[in-house]
Write a protein that binds this DNA or RNA. Structure first.
Lengths: 141, 141
DNA sequence: TATTGTTATACTCTATAACTATA
DNA sequence: TATAGTTATAGAGTATAACAATA
């Protein structure tokens, strides 16, 4: 009946797969009161204590203008602490509450990733991840 | 120096790969005065003359509320024509201008897809597309 | 001069609720 | 009652421009 002319375009399949996965992850994280970007920022701070917000932005490809309200929300909820390292930049660290929440974020994310990976035949998993990295990092600016 | 704790998460790589690819496609299509969703709707109409807008929404997973302004823009630009098939639904067809533009959309999309595919080793391409389809269609509602 | 952080603003995509007209 | 189409509205992510303070 209805023909889908986009079905065999890898770019379209990539977009649909990504948005389907993001929707599931967002639902999981909303239980913790977090959005996906907030959760990823918490994980980056945990892995890099005293990182500055501009460094996080470069790592996650989030513009500085958008980092400000994001970090502000996390600080308002006392999940992170800011300590001046410079006259203009602050090092970010997790608070105790932030550390506890990040532990739950990690569990949610790992469970989510396991779900995704389980849908891909085991022998193809490594090549799949390699292909995603090739598409991710090699795009022109 | 800075550690990326998300790098090995397929879900995160999926998101980054998708948004990088979408950014490139959006830039290509903006030359034609189209957004990615508008371009995909044109292609669906071309492949399915007289399709209704609710059928397009189900195919592309776009909510009815969001189809209305999208189709309205295409009709305002006289790229498509609406003919009542029903008291409440309209069949959509490309106008001559719409057909000409869709031809250019197809070329832009094909060029874009070829670029993507070229970044993936040839022996892994089929498995990559299959994996994307598995992630796309098998997500729970 | 360049960088960090910030505010303000706008656009796109998405999501929900409410309504009408038709089936 | 269910569906098609529409309007209004809000949230989230992203983008640019502008600015102050600092390096």
């Amino acid at each position: 009946m209805v023909v889908d002319p986009l079905k065999d375009f890898p770019g379209y399949a990539l977009r649909r797969a990504s948005s389907a996965a993001m929707a599931v992850l967002a639902r999981r994280l909303s239980i913790l009161g977090l959005r996906p970007t907030e959760a990823s920022v918490l994980m980056v701070i945990q892995a890099n204590p005293n990182i500055t917000q501009s460094e996080i932005g470069r790592l996650l490809d989030i513009a500085g203008a958008n980092m400000a309200p994001l970090v502000g929300r996390l600080a308002d909820r006392e999940l992170i602490e800011r300590e001046p390292v410079d006259g203009r930049s602050h090092g970010l660290k997790l608070s105790d509450a932030g550390r506890a929440l990040t532990l739950r974020v990690k569990k949610a994310m790992t469970a989510h990733e396991d779900e995704l990976v389980s849908k891909i035949p085991a022998p193809h998993r490594a090549a799949f991840l390699a292909a995603l990295h090739a598409l991710w990092s090699a795009e022109p600016p």
